[in-house]
Nucleic acid binder design. Structure first.
Length: 888
RNA sequence: GGGCGCUUAGCUCAGUUGGUCAGAGCGCCUGCCUUACAAGCAGGAGGUCCGCGGUUCGAGCCCGCGAGCGCCCACCA
């Protein structure tokens, strides 16, 4: 091929464009439930409704795509379940988040405008996401599934809700819940995020009834005192023993409240007496229930003070706090204030301080669901990778609280419960009822609440496959093979999928959970939009190309560690893409007209021929070692190991040595070795590209299509399997000796700053293996070490223009025309000697140790001895050369 | 308050069962535009493996203590 026909450097954008076109034409990634191939199914967390794709998504999605492509190439029947549950996987949260950001409330919009708004976001988001995923090199058609998901999901949600209700695992009741006054909805424990904040601890004085004495209580939330219905002390507390059963007068409101005793109170904290606000504190709520205290709600669902707050009614929580403090201070009822570190719960969506309120909500009794989910992980039915997340999982699951699933929001799956206006009966049903079965009343009101966004998400692994119907998909693809996601949603989503999956499908939802780390920026901070330090993956892709970005993400995904986003790495792997491009270019340029593809059978045939060169045998050997390593590593989700192995092989073995060694052969243009080498080279590149394909889909597909390849395949063909017939340790050893020798000569040249382009003659003293090596690879060594000729001699002539060097294969002497810089060379040799001596001393000490000789395994001792002999030989040669230089 | 994790070259990190494991990439230094590639080629310098003890013939690796950093969970005013 004419070199001008293929560009000199890799243009990522152009290759991507070619690929998109190709991809549009052939819809080749379609799962087939009917297939008899082994199934491989992966559930995918879809990007959210705002359509923003952050680096974390890019990471998870890239790793998923790598695994899916790899499995697909291996012949698995891959189903990649993508798409969106319009109410699930955080969608609800994102809507409220967005509204909070714009500082509007859904009530301001009204139902109609609100829904319109959401659909607008959704539509826009879907387009954006589609575009983004294509850019990322996604091999699944996201949109096709997205639009078919919703009805299935609703059906599944109802079925699950009704069944859990009938089993007594869902109940409705009045309890204290976390409440967000901005979103005006109940939220689950998980959604209330605790932050350490600096606050004040106020000591308030409550006067005793009919006495001049008083009791001091400590609080961080003075405004809640308006709702106090008791003061509690520890029953064993000497200080307060006499006061139990007496009453205090609540300041400001002048309400008489009792002093009660409860072991919950800690004698050591504050004053040892605590104010009790059953309507606004979870602990006080429990206390109130135990002691039958009245609940007085002084804060309403929007965070304002109720009429029970008397003169403070109508104020916001914050205003009320200031006013209460002011009034108390005026009346001399604040005894003390101190700075206090406290943990403040805030709403995950809008960061508003969460209020504790008593209200009627729906709950899932979670412990019975958690038990088998714990057992599944204990028995390794389901594994976490990295496994230390199992501890985190256990910790949470064993201390799990009932899950509040109702939300007073407008977006989500409606709770399938109806209330009869006439008789008050509650119905929980799969289908909308027409009349009350008890009294026949036609007026039934559906519960206005919707379900927690994670409720429907928890059904993902089976609802997407057609459940509750008995679908073929379900049969084939459940349990899914693997769940890949960031660890931040392990409780929100993963744990719930496991519980729901086991409960309804009687089997785990997936066998493996792979959790990737967080993406951090160069300052090691968590990348987040709110911090403004997020990097847009699309911009990065624009800059470096998808292949480089994907490869970087894979290469940096170690076992369970976070990723520090690094532009340097990106640049490095962009260079790698260019290297791949140019290696292929080299082959294409040197290929004879009408070169045929190299089949596996043909290669097997070549290997059987005696004339087949060791160099060719070697690269086939290495290729197979690498392929099996990559396969093993990907099986263990070691993306870093597999990508690095490929990188090193392609660049430093295939390009640096194989292609270089083959250049002289290609130059000959004909003959047996030529034909064999061309075949081997096509084959090596073919296999390398396939092995790289999951990581770098665009460039590999593009180049593979240009190379002679088998059949009319629509896409890069099957993933290579390791072929043990092609492995050849002898060839490997021989090549290592060659590489050793050439490197030794180059090292001497370079150390003495010889022009890399200049050629010099070389004399060598060698015997045995070394002699054999020289005989076989003379032309290769001459080419690679830039020599004019190699002469085998018995001893070297002594003159000023010689540089001596050593390799395991023999001693050599480079003949220069001019005198060498003897002092510099001596310096180098001295350094070398010091290093060798140090190692030899260490070894000698080891071998002199009787305990070592007695207790260490024989092979360890043997290798230490062999090493010692090698060192002695080397030392001898270096010191001889040093003496020679000194002697002149 | 509990739990988990991290500390290895200037930077970012590998190092799987304790014995050629002191490594990679980037950066740096030296010499080169050698006809696939300067997004390149060849060579090189760099480390008390956080500190202190212990186990062991032998310790980045196992154990204990300490220092620094990070994360998650938690209804104690």
């Amino acid at each position: 091929m004419n070199p001008d026909q293929i560009p000199k450097s890799y243009d990522a954008g152009a290759a991507e464009e070619r690929w998109y076109q190709f991809w549009e034409e052939k819809q080749f990634f379609v799962a087939r439930a009917e297939s008899t191939a082994p199934p491989f199914c992966i559930v995918m967390p879809p990007p959210n409704i705002t359509g923003s794709l952050h680096m974390g998504h890019a990471l998870t999605n890239t790793l998923q795509d790598i695994v899916v492509r790899w499995k697909r190439m291996q012949g698995f029947n891959t189903l990649w379940v993508p798409g969106t549950d319009h109410a699930g996987i955080g969608t609800q949260n994102v809507i409220e988040q967005q509204l909070a950001r714009e500082k509007i409330h859904r009530r301001d919009l009204g139902r109609e405008k609100f829904e319109q708004r959401v659909w607008e976001w959704k539509e826009k988001a879907e387009k954006t996401i589609h575009h983004q995923l294509r850019k990322l090199g996604y091999s699944c058609d996201w949109t096709r599934v997205a639009f078919t998901m919703e009805p299935r999901m609703s059906l599944a949600v109802r079925e699950v809700f009704v069944r859990l209700y009938e089993e007594g695992l869902i109940y409705r009741g009045e309890y204290m819940v976390n409440w967000c006054p901005r979103c005006t909805t109940a939220i689950s424990d998980l959604e209330a995020q605790h932050h350490a904040e600096q606050g004040q601890l106020y000591y308030l004085r409550y006067p005793l009834l009919d006495s001049d004495a008083s009791v001091s209580v400590a609080t961080t939330r003075p405004e809640t005192m308006l709702g106090d219905t008791a003061v509690a002390v520890h029953p064993d507390d000497e200080r307060y023993r006499d006061l139990i059963g007496r009453k205090v007068v609540l300041p400001l409101l002048h309400r008489e409240i009792p002093i009660i005793a409860d072991v919950f109170v800690q004698k050591e904290f504050g004053t040892g007496a605590v104010k009790v606000t059953p309507a606004h504190d979870p602990n006080d709520y429990q206390l109130g229930v135990r002691h039958h205290l009245p609940q007085i709600q002084v804060i309403d669902e929007t965070g304002r003070m109720t009429q029970h707050a008397g003169p403070y009614a109508g104020l916001s929580r914050e205003q009320a706090r200031r006013k209460v403090l002011e009034d108390l201070r005026q009346q001399g009822l604040i005894v003390n204030e101190e700075v206090h570190q406290l943990s403040v719960p805030r709403c995950q969506r809008c960061n508003t301080v969460v209020e504790s309120l008593v209200s009627t909500q729906w709950f899932v009794k979670i412990a019975p669901l958690a038990k088998p989910a714990i057992e599944a992980v204990e028995s390794a039915d389901l594994r976490f990778i990295p496994s230390n997340y199992e501890k985190v999982y256990f910790e949470w699951m064993r201390n799990i609280h009932d899950w509040c699933i109702s939300r007073q929001l407008w977006w989500g799956h409606r709770i399938p419960a109806w209330y009869c206006d006439a008789c008050g009966r509650m119905l929980v049903l799969r289908t909308d009822p027409e009349r009350c079965p008890q009294c026949g009343n036609l007026k039934l009101q559906q519960d206005p609440d919707v379900l927690d966004t994670w409720f429907s998400s928890g059904l993902w692994p089976f609802s997407t496959l057609g459940w509750p119907k008995k679908s073929r998909d379900l049969e084939v693809f459940y349990p899914n093979s693997v769940m890949m996601t960031g660890f931040d949603i392990i409780f929100f989503w993963v744990a719930r999928m496991i519980m729901m999956g086991i409960h309804f499908m009687h089997d785990v939802p997936f066998r493996t959970v792979f959790l990737n780390g967080l993406v951090r920026n160069q300052e090691k901070q968590k990348m987040s939009k709110s911090k403004g330090n997020a990097v847009d993956p699309l911009e990065i892709i624009e800059q470096y190309g998808t292949d480089a970005v994907r490869f970087t993400l894979a290469a940096m995904t170690g076992a369970g560690s976070d990723i520090v986003f690094s532009t340097d790495r990106m640049i490095g792997y962009r260079a790698f893409a260019n290297k791949i491009w140019n290696a292929a270019r080299f082959l294409l340029i040197n290929l004879p007209e009408n070169a045929a593809p190299a089949s596996r059978a043909e290669i097997q045939g070549l290997v059987a021929q005696r004339s087949f060169s060791t160099v060719n045998r070697w690269i086939l050997h290495r290729l197979n070692v690498i392929v099996s390593k990559v396969n093993e590593d990907l099986e263990k989700f070691r993306f870093d190991e597999s990508s690095n192995a490929l990188y090193h092989f392609f660049w430093h073995e295939l390009c640096d040595w194989y292609l270089e060694l083959s250049k002289p052969v290609l130059g000959s243009k004909s003959g047996e070795d030529y034909n064999q080498t061309v075949k081997t080279m096509i084959y090596s590149l073919d296999i390398s590209l396939r092995a790289l394909h999951p990581f770098m889909p665009f460039i590999t597909e593009d180049l593979w299509q240009r190379l002679p390849h088998q059949g009319q395949s629509v896409a890069i063909a099957a993933y290579p399997v390791a072929d043990s017939n092609l492995e050849n340790p002898e060839a490997d050893q021989e090549m290592n000796q060659l590489i050793d020798f050439v490197t030794a000569v180059r090292s001497v040249r370079s150390e003495n700053n010889l022009d890399p382009g200049r050629r010099f003659p070389l004399e060598v003293i060698a015997s045995g293996d070394g002699l054999d090596l020289l005989a076989r690879y003379k032309p290769a060594i001459v080419a690679l070490a830039k020599l004019t000729e190699i002469r085998v001699v018995d001893n070297f002539q002594e003159d000023g223009g010689r540089l001596r060097g050593f390799s395991s294969q023999g001693e050599f002497s480079l003949i220069l025309e001019t005198a060498i810089n003897a002092s510099a060379e001596m310096e180098r040799l001295k350094k070398e000697m010091a290093k060798l001596r140090k190692e030899a001393e260490r070894g000698a000490k080891k071998l002199a140790n009787h305990d070592f000789l007695r207790k260490a395994p024989q092979e360890v001792i043997d290798s230490a001895k062999i090493r010692q002999v090698e060192l002695a030989g080397k030392l001898e040669k270096v010191s001889a050369e040093l003496r020679r230089l000194e002697g002149r």
